[in-house]
């Protein structure tokens, strides 16, 4: 078992143990960072929330939104957060829960606050500018996908026959990489990825594990390969794969279990070969 798998297993056991001792009919305290908008100061607010069986962080946030009164009886505004699918496939609801980044829709209260009065802290992701409360603007994350040209350059959307044949093993490799839901967990946990509000600096700041992995995904596709050189150029430049410091947090927090550190190694190799090849051929 790899260290990442061992860690996951350990965390799963911990959650299971909490579930087993969760008390029915309890209330838990939600400590939430509130911020009214960019540049505004932030503050903590606490709420006491009754827990239903199967409650998760989003359902509790909904409860707070409908009853926006803090624990010391102060009327406040409903908290703002981002969410979509509520099934852990869209990536919208990512936030920092009890100090660690994860999706809030799949975060069961029983697993995090099993006893009466236990506290759950919610913070917005710290690597992206806050829009309001728990909602952050992840535009830079999507910009990174443009940098590595994360697409297959097809001729047109008109019928031109089937795509390339592919072995089931190869399909599995691509499928795993293709499950990335752009949630940003890997970026939040990465010590090399830091908040950058200045859009003009995005193209030079660290691109992040998700995009490195996407570059690999599209380099693996028969037609996607056409842009391989351009992707590797981007990854060789400042902010590319070289800026990864191999802390390997990314792979541990990725909810989709994407083999990010393997992608980083693979792109390390590809950029090495690319550099040598272009040195001798003079071609980029």
């Amino acid at each position: 078992m790899s260290s990442t798998e061992a860690l996951r297993e350990h965390e799963a056991q911990e959650r299971k143990a909490n579930r087993a001792r969760a008390k029915a009919g309890r209330s838990v305290i939600f400590k939430i960072i509130r911020c009214d908008g960019p540049g505004k100061p932030s503050r903590w607010e606490s709420f006491k929330v009754p827990v239903e069986p199967g409650s998760n962080v989003i359902s509790c946030l909904k409860w707070i939104a409908a009853n926006p009164v803090t624990i010391d009886g102060k009327q406040t505004t409903p908290p703002v957060w981002d969410s979509g699918c509520l099934e852990e496939v869209c990536g919208a609801c990512t936030m920092v829960i009890n100090g660690k980044v994860r999706q809030s829709c799949s975060c069961l209260i029983d697993e995090y606050a099993p006893l009466e009065g236990d506290t759950i802290t919610l913070e917005p992701m710290s690597k992206f500018p806050v829009v309001r409360d728990l909602w952050v603007d992840r535009a830079r994350l999507f910009n990174a996908l443009k940098r590595v040209k994360a697409w297959v350059p097809i001729d047109s959307t008109y019928a031109q026959g089937a795509g390339p044949k592919e072995s089931p093993e190869h399909q599995q490799t691509r499928y795993r990489l293709s499950e990335c839901m752009s949630c940003g967990c890997c970026l939040e946990a990465c010590p090399q990825y830091n908040i950058e509000e200045d859009e003009s600096k995005w193209d030079e700041s660290f691109i992040g594990a998700h995009a490195i992995s996407q570059a690999r995904l599209f380099n693996e596709h028969e037609t996607g390969k056409r842009l391989k050189g351009e992707r590797l150029e981007e990854l060789s430049d400042k902010g590319g794969v070289g800026d990864c410091g191999n802390a390997q947090n990314c792979v541990k927090v990725c909810p989709k279990h994407i083999p990010l550190t393997e992608s980083i190694g693979a792109m390390g190799r590809a950029t090495t070969i690319h550099a040598i090849a272009s040195f001798f051929t003079g071609k980029k």
Binding site: T157, Q160, E166, P168, Y175
Partner: peptide
Amino acid sequence: DLLDRMGVPFNRTH
């Protein structure tokens, strides 16, 4: 076919 060309990782036979 088009989605296939766009790179959708459809499951494959042997």
